[in-house]
Design a protein around this nucleic acid. Structure first.
Lengths: 229, 229
DNA sequence: TGCCGTCTATGACGGGCATCATGTTCCCTG
DNA sequence: CAGGGAACATGATGCCCGTCATAGACGGCA
């Protein structure tokens, strides 16, 4: 838990258009905190005392269904807002957030964040934009999660990851994101066994391989064929 | 397509805090339009020329998945905003909207809506609030749609409808919303045949009956037992 | 009144996937 | 190095539900 610096704030798109003086003031009350892989940042149902911004690493936002199953709603990298909805509306967090890898977040107390919003239309604008984007992505995920085979969803998931953060390496497209089989299952709305089955079959068929620090998509064409079906 | 009146605008929560003069101006450029049951209001992918507000009736917002299946994302009654995300970001509508029954909407041209936003922080505030609410509801639906039995989802759907708009009548709780079997299927992420099977079985078992203008929940306890499982 | 399209209904069938169970690998720690 | 827990792997089993097919019910329209 270290103080924030204006430089860090300036690197966050949401705060880029805030004037330097206010950034100074914000830095004075903002705090930085690191989270280990798997560490919980906040929990569904907790009172929303803080608004968070991801500074480094990746974070998953997840929620548990009525039957005890868990589903990952979205994954955020640097700049991603956490708890915006809850903090804005002063209601409990509607979902949990957990670090997918070593990550650091900027914490802003709810009341501070709120008074900052009052004086900065551009901030409100930025929030509206990011909420809009999330709405669009969530609706797309909702439409994709229903009525398709699980393998199709896996194919689409990895194609999206490849587009977002893939780089040519290790004889294919390398996605530098270590996700467990359980997390893959939570992303696609299935069980861990089915996730394991698909991943180990793909490994044998030379489509995709799992590494310690991510995945290597060896045969992108195969994934595209599966996603299209 | 008739002109809007300030009285209609005043009845819409989103515009309630806009000052009367601006409401006059808005009424001058806003248009009212009626839609028959099943009529399309706008289509996924269309350019977002208008921002809509439901004035009367009910409207479904739906989207088609990759395999041609359709899913209903949400249903709006009077006051519900349609196309807010697209209009705000000037991107094509991410989903379609269709009238579930005879409905009327207020249409506001995108550019007019946008300049109105500029001068009214309370409007922006209202938009943020409604987007937040929709995000929360969507995430809940996402979590519920995965990993459960179809019958559970049906039970939860009707319990929610009962809470939202049910009234004691006809020997049970009457939900005044005529939804086809296909629409029930689109709401729960299943097929029309499964929807028909569940509904006709429930009818025989005396749990729930379909009427011309809605549904009657006869045995609420039975639904609660199913939803909990 | 008769035709036809839409919606509702019901059966047969099979496969995908959840569930249960057991085993292996790997890492971490004392 | 032994022990233990977590993640990965794989087989057996069963059933929910998607798919295909057929038929009745109903309403609109000529």
């Amino acid at each position: 838990m270290t103080p924030a610096t204006p430089a860090i704030l300036a690197a966050i798109p949401l705060f880029r258009r805030v004037n330097p003086e206010d950034r100074e003031r914000l830095a004075a009350v903002g705090r930085l905190r690191e989270y280990a892989r798997g560490e919980r940042i906040f929990d569904e149902g907790d009172p929303s005392d803080f608004f968070y911004v991801v500074v480094s690493g990746r974070v998953k936002v997840h929620k548990h269904g009525p039957k005890g199953n868990e589903i990952i709603l979205e994954m955020f990298g640097p700049g991603g807002p956490l708890g915006a909805v809850a903090a804005y509306e002063a209601r409990p967090y509607p979902a949990s957030a957990t670090a997918l890898e070593l990550a650091s977040c900027l914490l802003i107390r709810r009341d501070v964040f709120f008074t900052l919003l009052e004086g900065h239309p551009s901030l409100v604008r930025g929030l509206l934009g990011s909420l809009s984007l999330r709405l669009v992505e969530l609706t797309t995920r909702l439409a994709e999660l229903t009525g398709g085979r699980v393998e199709e969803r896996f194919a689409r998931l990895f194609l999206k990851l490849a587009d977002q953060m893939g780089r040519d390496d290790r004889g294919g497209v390398f996605v530098p994101l270590p996700l467990s089989r359980q997390e893959l299952a939570d992303l696609t709305g299935t069980t861990i066994e089915t996730a394991i089955r698909i991943m180990s079959r793909w490994n044998k068929e030379g489509v995709l391989s799992t590494e310690k620090d991510g995945f290597v998509i060896v045969d992108r064409k195969a994934l595209e064929a599966l996603a299209a079906s």
